[in-house]
Structure formats: C-alpha cells, structure tokens
Nucleic acid binder design. Sequence first.
DNA 1: TAGATTGTTAATCGATTAACAATC
DNA 2: TAGATTGTTAATCGATTAACAATC
Lengths: 238, 238
Amino acid sequence: MTARSSSETTRVIPEATVARLPVYLRALTALADAGIRTCSSEDLATAAGVNSAKLRKDLSYLGSYGTRGVGYDVDYLRYQIAREIGVTQDWPVVIVGIGNLGHALANYSGFRSRGFRVVALLDADPERHEEIVAGVPVRPFADLEAIAREHAVAIGVIATPAGSAQDVADQMVAAGITSILNFAPAVISVPDGVDVRKVDLSIELQILAYHEQRKAHEHARVDADDHGAAALAVGGDA
Amino acid sequence: MTARSSSETTRVIPEATVARLPVYLRALTALADAGIRTCSSEDLATAAGVNSAKLRKDLSYLGSYGTRGVGYDVDYLRYQIAREIGVTQDWPVVIVGIGNLGHALANYSGFRSRGFRVVALLDADPERHEEIVAGVPVRPFADLEAIAREHAVAIGVIATPAGSAQDVADQMVAAGITSILNFAPAVISVPDGVDVRKVDLSIELQILAYHEQRKAHEHARVDADDHGAAALAVGGDA
DNA sequence: TAGATTGTTAATCGATTAACAATC
DNA sequence: TAGATTGTTAATCGATTAACAATC
C-alpha cells in the first residue's frame, strides 16, 4: 500500500490559482455582506479584479460549484473556497519582532477575522517584555520553542530587522514551525518542507519606481518627437 | 516623425525580471558592505535566493555588464541596476491613512535609504492632525492635491481601511499620482496608465494556510496508509 | 423551448531552466 | 594555453485567454 494508493484524490491546484483564492473569498464576503445571494462569474470576477475566464478556470480546479445558466450561490461558493484554503479552521500564529511593523501586525484585525489567532508576541529586547500589545504580552524570544509546541503553532511571522531574520527563521524551524511570513528585508533559507512567503515594502515601491521612470521616459520621448516634428515644420518655412 | 522613430531603443524587460531587480540590488549592497568587489553569477544568485541561470537571463535584459571568465564588478552592476530601476533619483511619496500600519510605514527606514522621501502624511480624522510621525506632521486628507502638485508626487501609499481605499485612489489619480501601493484589503480600480501594486497581509497568511493544510493532509494520508499496511500485516495473521 | 452561463478545450503567451558557444 | 564564467539559445513548463459545447 503506497501513499499514491490512497482513496483521496490529490488535486493539484496551480500556485497562481492558490494566490487568487483568498481574493475570491474576500470578494464573495463583500457580496454576501451586500445581501447578494447569487452571482455570475462575471459579477464575481469584477468584484475580485480579474477577468471571468480566469475566474472560471480557477474555480474549475476546486470542483463544479456553479449552475450553468444561473451562476454561483454566494454562501456555498464562499464556504467551498474557505474550506479549500483552510480558513475554516483556527491557525495559531506567533509574531517575532515587536517594533513598529510588529505592533501594526499584532493589531491588524484582518488576521483574527480570518481564523489567524496571535498566540504570542516575541522580542529579543528585554525592555519590551513589560509591554502588552493588542492584549497579548510581549515575551522573550527564548520562549519561542515552548510557546510554539504548547499551542501547536504552524505559522510564524518575522518582523525583525534584516540581521536577525535568518536566526529567527532557524529557531522557528527548530520549534516545529513549517510556514513563515517574512517581513524582514533579507533572504532567508529554510529546509525543504518549510514554506516561506516574503513581503517587502521597499521592493514594492522600487517596482513602482521602475514603471514610473519608464512612463517619464516615454513622455519625454514623445515630447521630444513632437518638438522634432514642430522643428521640421518650421524648418520647411526657412 | 512618429514616437517609434525615436533613437532610443525601448528595451522591454519582462515583469518577472523587474520584480527581481530590487532583490539583486539589495544582494549587491550586502556584498559591497561585506567588502566584496567582484562576484560570479553563482555568488550573486545565492545571495539573492535564485538560481544562477535565472539571474544571468535577467541581467541579460539590461545589457552585458559582466566579464566572461571573471564575473561582475559589484559596484558597477549595482549602479547599473539602480539606474535601470530608477532609484538613483529621488521619489517623493505621500502616505494616506495614519493608523498602525501608516505609522509603521512612515517610520520605515528602508524607504528613505532607497530614494523614497515621505513628503506628507494624510489622514481624514481631525484628531490626528496634531500628531507628528517620523518628523512629518499629519495633515488633512483634503490637502492631498495641493501637496501632490507642490512636490510633484508620483507615488502614493494607501494605508486606510478597505472602505476608503477607492475614494483615496480616485483622489490620488485626480492629484496626478500615477503609481499606487495599496495596503487596504480592497480591490481598487484606476484608469489606464496608473500602476497599482497590492500588499495584502491576510492574503499572504491564507496562502501559507493552504499549503499548511495540504502538508497536514499529506501526513494524515501517509499515516493512514501506514496503519493500513500495519492492519494488513496483522490481518494476515488472523 | 430560448436565453443564459458554466466548465472545459485548445491556442497563445510568458517564464524558467539547462546546456553550451563565446570569450575573458 | 587552460580554466572559468558569461550571455544566449532552445526546450520545457506553467499561466492566461478566447471560444464554445454542455446544460441549467
């Protein structure tokens, strides 16, 4: 009996699709809050900011939860996506590094409302161990393993400076954490089987700057060409 | 004379490459800080967390800045990438929404060090207009257009609740801002020519939760199969 | 039945990767 | 020259899109 022989069919959902499922979930929640019971793929796609072909293709990886000629039942589809993502269950989370960003993350209401429960805030600085942030006391970083084991924490958030990120990641892995959300501006390496996602504020701004610069060049180039055309017209008179 | 006739060759850099250039820039800065003057594509790829084939392919879109048999001059390559991204120049930025996250963003040192200068903090709440955050006074949201025009702001950051995001985006566009970094958990629509990037904290966690859940299922499945095999062995004795 | 809309197919597009000729 | 490493090619892979048969 091999793992492959299991009765459960392992659907493989493309990574690009996985990344959009939470967007659909949020859009469905907004529709439900607006009292809408049924929607077409076109409606939902608009609410989620994608085109309807992509939405239908994405949903097709989960199953057939719509009705041809009718559309989707908002609550039903919402539940199916939530179940697929795993947000119908509770996910204990620890945040390491309680500076400005750590504070903001600890206070972020969007976590708790989606099943993420901040069970501990950790910081290496003893000065911070008096603090209570968002109702949770800040504890020494050394307590990580005990806390992670006690609460069966699977997800850790790194909000430390870049220099500490790898060490924190190593300790998280040692404590049995297998998913890491890294806000530190540093590349961290982890063993196979551990997932890391990276959010980098200054990288996002730099990507925008690149496009902004291209727009500026494009305008300058068009302007220069306009002047060229004008000069040519004037030159014709000379 | 058409725009296409311009002497400047418009290199098209793939979006996936653009998103990695800031990562390379940061890795090169780290190498330079460590006193390293020259590096191979393998060295830099390791520092950036990608494979060397991808790195070389990415750099090839910018030009030929390496030396075969030798590698890359760290400072030279760093300058070329910085120029390509546009971070050799100064980018005035406004942040709208000075809650927990807005505070953290205003205080984030990684912005200023990369040429992003926070010229104004704006908030709709009059209670906040007394505050000074990171040396910058919080001003009324109504001042957006005047400030944006005065400082030629091209990039705006939205750190408001979801409900205000579209309105803020509209006002930003009206004020001449053409790049928006949106932290609000909402889809915003903008006219053509305006770039939007979205950072969504809870979506990142949900993506991790999906993979975490799959790992848990995988383990449960393998365990079940193991038990199945054990039962089969026992069954053979019955 | 007629109209509407899904789920799927197939074509296209873009990104990744390995391999290696070019060349220092 | 011999060894090292880039820049490029070509193959592969994955994601997107349009179109439409299936079906409510």
